[in-house]
Amino acid sequence: MSKIIELKNVNKWFDKFQALKDINLEVNQQERIVICGPSGSGKSTLIRCINRLEEHQDGQIVVDGKEISENTKDLEKIRAEVGMVFQQFNLFPHLSILDNCTLAPIWVKKMPKKDAEALAMKNLERVQIADQAKKFPGQLSGGQQQRSALARALCMEPKIMLFDEPTSALDPEMIKEVLDAMVDLAKAGMTMIVVTHEMGFAKEVADNMIFMDQGQIVEKAKTKDFFENPKSDRTKLFLSQIL
């Protein structure tokens, strides 16, 4: 399997606070990685650097063969290939769910409107929300909104999907419906990097686990080894607290 994302010695500072320290990471195609760690450990910052919602100051990030830096001219093209799902959904409240899904394909990929709508309906069907297509985001529950946001990202037909704590803002009852949609996506062979605290989900779909603390990758291991046989004490402590 070929690698699709590569991070080499990535460092990032927010003013004087170092958010990421010497991050090295390789992600292969169709690999599913779950990143966990305490809050403030840099998990979100890490995946936000991958589509440059945050800028890294040092090191190299290569996505699908293209390096991301301030000189990247076709940053938009790279972003179009990397889908992202946010903690707060970030649906566009002035557009219907269907329009949320078709907007980027039409304007960024120049897809004809009919094709974009067919694609959107297919993806909405996939997350089981097709019957809500004409509604506005404000009329849906949190779980429905997050599934719509997932469908919106999928409509760009991305090669990689990033999930930034997709279930943290949801009621417990709604978490399952979102996780189910994500499991479904993982089974279809999508490359995924997921920041989450849902360890059940991690055990089910992740190939590799990453544990981060204080801006560093403390441990990276196969999922089975990670849960059954963690190496570092910090990981053990963390797992003992959340499992």
Binding site: R79, A80, M84, F86, Q88, N90, F92, A104, A153, M156
Partner: peptide, 15 residues
């Protein structure tokens, strides 16, 4: 407008 709206638009590849 919340920052998330800008980020969502960017993440979809909009300039």
């Amino acid at each position: 407008l919340p920052k998330g709206q800008y980020e969502a638009a960017k993440s979809l590849g909009m300039g």
